[in-house]
Amino acid sequence: MTSHAAEPMRPDARTARRRAANLRTATILLSIAAVFFCGIIVAQYSDTPAVAIGILGLAIIGFLGVTIGRNVGRRERQ
């Protein structure tokens, strides 16, 4: 790995773009946390809580699989 100082970009444009991307990512992650928090409680009110919790569990595993898979796959584009 080699490290050099990069060509400086226009700081305003770079900062604004990065801030928007950061907010977008954080909002998605926060909404996932909120869904899991509410989901585990709402599942108890289902007629079959075991099934509801199972669905939530699969959603969590699916979320992990998709996000990690996407991140690994994105390296090709980078």
Binding site: L29, I32, A33, A34, V35, F36, F37, C38, G39, I40, I41, Q44, I60, F63, L64, T67, I68, N71
Partner: peptide, 21 residues
């Protein structure tokens, strides 16, 4: 740490939900 942070996002709300109940 990236993977750990995903784990935290997935399971801390579940703990929070269960202790809320």
């Amino acid at each position: 740490w990236l993977i750990t942070a995903y784990l935290l996002i997935a399971v801390m709300p579940v703990l929070a939900g269960s202790v809320t109940m």
